[in-house]
């Protein structure tokens, strides 16, 4: 399934957060969105998933405008994994993953829904935790459960908002390997907002670098992760080498004091 974004802009009340985003992502691709805090990564994901409504026709799935789909149809196409999750009431892991079947069930889950949930838990190696309470699990396990919930939706496009930011290195690797596998074996398109540039470089086919709500660079990790781009977007000096995986590897050196940072393009100056 092909996702196209055509000139997407979004403002919280009158404060513009995203300005003229154009993007296309193909079947089975992993796209990572990187950029400093407040650059609009989460907002972009929420706009794609219509959690935040944009004006006009901007997001298209296979050429169809998502604003024309109803929420239920959309939720069969896209799954969303939020930055942090908690459950107000004590639900079991199985219950939480079953909630992913919501678009398909009316009041009570069918036999097939139970099978799909069991398969999904098995796929992510969560079967042993199925009857545990969600709130008692570790951060890494919780994140996997939330990914399982999104997978139970059987989406064609999966959106993840910093899925690895609170996890130890093993869980980070596990989750990113699962995502890569999903993209390759199930031809799921995956869009993931991330902070770790090296992880993003290793696991994504395409990268999108945001700066203050605008696309600064887009393309392969080699094209996006250059010393100049990193300096301009993050305001740090960095060295980019090649990792043993053959992907660019970023070694951050030191922050540049704000005075030295090259001036942003003049259109930003107009806004302030």
């Amino acid at each position: 399934m092909k996702l196209t974004i055509d000139h997407l802009s979004f403002s919280y009340s009158s404060f513009p957060v995203l300005k003229g985003i154009d993007l296309a992502i193909d079947l089975g691709e992993v796209l990572s969105i990187v950029g400093p805090n407040g650059s609009g990564k989460s907002t972009l994901l929420k706009c794609i998933n219509r959690i935040l409504k944009t004006k006009g026709n901007t997001v298209f799935v296979d050429g169809k405008d998502i604003n024309k789909l109803n929420l239920k149809e959309l939720s069969k196409i896209m799954g969303y994994v939020p930055q942090s999750s908690m459950s107000v009431f004590p639900f079991t892991v199985f219950d939480i993953v079953m909630m992913g079947r919501t678009p398909y069930i009316h009041w009570s889950p069918s036999e097939q829904d139970y099978e799909i949930v069991a398969e999904t838990l098995d796929f992510l190696g969560l079967s042993d935790l199925a009857m545990r309470h969600f709130n008692e699990l570790s951060g890494g396990e919780q994140q996997k459960v939330i990914i399982a919930r999104a997978l139970a939706q059987q989406p064609k496009i999966l959106l993840l908002d910093e899925p690895t930011s609170n996890l130890d290195i093993k869980h980070q690797l596990e989750i990113l390997c699962i995502l890569k596998d999903l993209a390759q074996s199930k031809h799921c398109s995956i869009i993931v907002a991330m902070h770790d540039l090296n992880m993003a470089s290793r696991f994504s086919d395409k990268m999108l670098m945001l700066k203050k709500g605008c696309i600064f660079a887009v393309g392969t990790p080699e094209k996006v992760l250059t010393e100049e781009n990193i300096e301009a977007v993050y305001g740090i000096k960095a060295k980019v080498t090649k990792s043993i995986m053959g992907k660019p590897q970023v070694v951050p050196l030191e922050p540049i004091s704000s005075k030295e940072v090259s001036e942003t393009p003049s259109k930003f100056a107009l806004l302030t």
């Binding site: 969303y80 939020p82 459950s87």
Partner: peptide
């Protein structure tokens, strides 16, 4: 489970 999640589940 939260409003964002509910919306994403239709």
């Amino acid at each position: 489970m939260g409003e964002d999640v509910a919306t994403s589940l239709g």
